[in-house]
Computed example of a mutant assay.
Amino acid sequence: MLIVVPGCSKQPEPIEPDPTPTPVEPVLPEAAKENTEDGALAFLEHYLAVMDYASSTGDVTQLTELSHPECTGCRTYIDLYTDYYEGGGWFKGGDQTLDNTAIQMIDGEVLITADISLTAGSSQAPDADVPSQHKASTEQVTHGMFWVEDRWLLTQMFLGEVPTS
């Protein structure tokens, strides 16, 4: 038996899911609230996740809160993301992971040297006509942080290892 329903001869258009998931603001893990080497490492992992969030959204609120006011490397990224998004630019991809960590303490500052890998991505500068493509890459980066008023603050970031005196 075949039932014909009038007006239902047209198939509905399939709804395609958005291929770009909406970024979710990272939450500081409990481990990053500890004044220990493991706490410092958990803080750095969180900081990188916050950088990824800021680059995907232009929201630098948390990145600013986690950065020491005198951290010039931090300020460079905060300004970059702010300028891009306020000018109509954007970033996609380029998410960071860290590997091969080495932790040192020098004059009360925790320094973590790690291989930071970035996924491939793209960006559109506010004044550019076409997006730029970025290949996946890995760099050795050192991040410095101090425990200040019951929390970690990133104080510096630079390419390479901690210089030996």
Rank of each mutant, 00 (worst) to 15 (best):
105 M>N: 15
8 C>W: 00
79 D>G: 01
13 E>Y: 02
69 P>R: 09
27 V>C: 01
10 K>E: 10
140 Q>I: 15
80 L>P: 00
148 V>T: 12
127 D>M: 08
21 P>S: 05
87 G>Q: 03
10 K>Q: 08
115 D>K: 15
27 V>S: 07
6 P>S: 14
140 Q>F: 06
22 T>W: 07
82 T>I: 06
99 D>P: 04
147 W>C: 05
128 A>H: 09
122 S>N: 13
147 W>R: 02
120 A>N: 04
134 H>T: 13
18 D>H: 08
94 G>A: 06
106 I>V: 15
44 L>T: 03
141 V>T: 07
155 T>R: 03
154 L>N: 15
45 E>L: 07
117 S>H: 10
37 E>L: 13
21 P>N: 07
135 K>R: 10
47 Y>L: 06
150 D>W: 02
165 S>G: 11
107 D>Q: 13
141 V>I: 15
146 F>R: 08
150 D>V: 08
64 T>S: 15
90 W>K: 04
55 S>F: 12
136 A>R: 03
117 S>T: 15
123 S>I: 00
18 D>C: 05
51 M>I: 09
126 P>H: 08
45 E>A: 11
21 P>M: 04
161 E>W: 01
60 V>W: 01
5 V>C: 12
96 Q>V: 08
9 S>H: 14
30 E>L: 07
154 L>W: 10
86 E>H: 09
125 A>W: 14
132 S>N: 14
20 T>M: 11
103 I>H: 11
105 M>D: 12
161 E>H: 07
52 D>R: 08
21 P>Q: 02
141 V>G: 02
102 A>L: 14
133 Q>K: 13
53 Y>W: 04
43 F>P: 02
5 V>W: 01
60 V>L: 02
131 P>H: 11
105 M>Y: 09
153 L>W: 04
104 Q>E: 15
80 L>F: 08
159 L>S: 12
100 N>C: 11
84 Y>L: 09
153 L>G: 07
124 Q>H: 14
140 Q>G: 06
93 G>N: 06
76 T>D: 12
113 T>C: 06
9 S>K: 08
124 Q>G: 14
151 R>F: 03
115 D>G: 07
40 A>P: 00
51 M>G: 13
57 T>S: 13
90 W>C: 00
4 V>K: 07
156 Q>G: 11
142 T>K: 03
142 T>D: 04
76 T>V: 10
114 A>R: 08
91 F>C: 09
141 V>M: 13
2 L>C: 08
22 T>F: 06
161 E>V: 11
48 L>K: 01
109 E>K: 10
30 E>W: 00
126 P>S: 10
